[in-house]
């Protein structure tokens, strides 16, 4: 049942590059909201979002040093939903795509709907979109599989070596405390052990960071997998691993399909 008061939530993405990737509908949502909560990647982007509405509140302060990020996210959700409960038209503006590796937006929408208010998400331009454009990848060519790096380590995943593999947040891979922003050499070496079970040590990979302003360039650094431990990694660095095998045809399925379509 929808609540009869006016409160509502819309989650929008700012895109990755300031000024260039905010969709018209996302801008409208920011401009017309009673209150905007934001979590974006740079101070300049914060200033940019703040210029669109007189009541923009920064969620960055919730990232307290040493506090596990899951606690941080819960606090963020609570403060956003509270304003909806107060009858405000709330906009949550997040870096990139609001639903891409962004648990706060999903949880805030879920919680808002649970208590009977309207909530929705508008799509945005994500780091993955920038990566596809900068590296010239097409998911249709051989497929792309992607995981958050720590999750990739924690769970037994079936990796297809004939498709691309993207590992997000490689710079904090294996950090179970959810407090770190810098790489841990020991956990990185465990990640490499896992990858060496699938890929040759000399396999060429890419470190990717999308550019955030028109003055900067995206980071596209080619290196071999065994050089990864020496590379400079940030919490926003993505590891791109191209296929090391060609796709194997399923001849049995192909025969059956031919019987249908010939």
């Amino acid at each position: 049942m929808t609540n009869t008061t006016e409160g509502s939530l819309v989650c929008v993405g700012t895109g990755i590059q300031i000024g260039a990737q905010l969709t018209p509908v996302a801008r409208r949502c920011i401009e017309e909201a009673d209150v905007v909560f934001m979590s974006v990647s740079t101070h300049i982007m914060e200033e940019w979002v703040s210029s669109m509405n007189s009541d923009v509140r920064n969620l960055q302060s919730y990232y307290e040093k040493g506090l596990p990020r899951n606690k941080t996210y819960k606090s963020m959700v609570d403060v956003v939903v509270h304003e909806v409960e107060c009858g405000k038209k709330v906009c949550l503006a997040l870096y990139g795509h609001p639903g891409m590796f962004a648990i706060v937006a999903h949880k805030a929408i879920e919680k808002t709907r649970e208590i009977g208010f309207k909530a929705r998400m508008e799509p945005g331009i994500s780091a993955e979109d920038c990566l596809i454009a900068d590296l010239g990848l097409d998911p249709g060519t051989c497929g792309i599989q992607q995981f958050e790096a720590t999750q990739f380590m924690l769970y037994q995943r079936l990796i297809d070596p004939s498709a691309y593999l993207l590992l997000w947040q490689i710079g904090v891979a294996g950090d179970l405390t959810l407090t770190s922003r810098t790489p841990n050499k020991k956990s990185l070496s465990i990640l490499l052990e896992l990858l060496f079970e699938i890929y040759p040590e000399s396999h060429q990979v890419v470190l990717y960071e999308a550019r955030t302003t028109p003055l900067t360039q995206s980071r596209v650094e080619y290196l071999s997998l065994n050089e990864l431990s020496k590379a400079q990694l940030h919490d926003y660095t993505t590891l791109v691993i191209p296929p090391c095998e060609v796709m194997k045809k399923n001849t049995d399925i192909e025969k059956r399909l031919k019987l249908i379509f010939t």
Partner: peptide, 14 residues
């Protein structure tokens, strides 16, 4: 202008 990266992690791995 302060365009250094801030924390943008917003997911939990498990």
């Amino acid at each position: 202008l302060g365009s250094q990266h801030k924390i943008v992690c917003m997911l939990v791995p498990a």
